[in-house]
Amino acid sequence: MVKQLQQYCGTLSRMPFPDMPSIAEAQMLPLTTDNDFSVFANFTSSPYPVFVNVREHYQILSDLVDEAQLCWPKITIIVRISMPGGMRIPANLLADNVLLLEDITCEEQKLVVFENSLLVIEDYFTRIEIDNNDNSVRLRLYSNDVLPSGALQPLITCLQKRGVI
């Protein structure tokens, strides 16, 4: 059977939680030696604005995964999550049908062949300048069954509420 695919691509255009106070908890890498500073200074910087911190980023991912679990119980979900050490990842992102990866490319290629249904959440929200992200986000929903039109809409609405256009 031909795998059905629905996809979405958007861009984060503003701070996602504008009316909510945010804890100033971002931490700088603990640089001490000349080499540490030199290496850090040589990382290139993204020209895109930083709208989101690690906690807020995890909150957005967490909301998307909660929504997906409601829409398609037990679906396999792969999520791009770079710089994972920033803080503890919320428990719902650690569920056994979710896999968190620095780069989803190879796993997506593999799973799309075997899985009946697969959701890919791939964001490039800039959280620190050196992550070289562009604030884009992509969703891809694959299924062996026919997907109703707008199947991704609950997740898209979730993103739109947070300033993704």
Binding site: I81, L100, C106, E107
Partner: peptide, 9 residues
């Protein structure tokens, strides 16, 4: 290896 996993440290 074809998949890289580091999120769970």
């Amino acid at each position: 290896p074809d998949t890289f996993v580091n999120a769970y440290e």
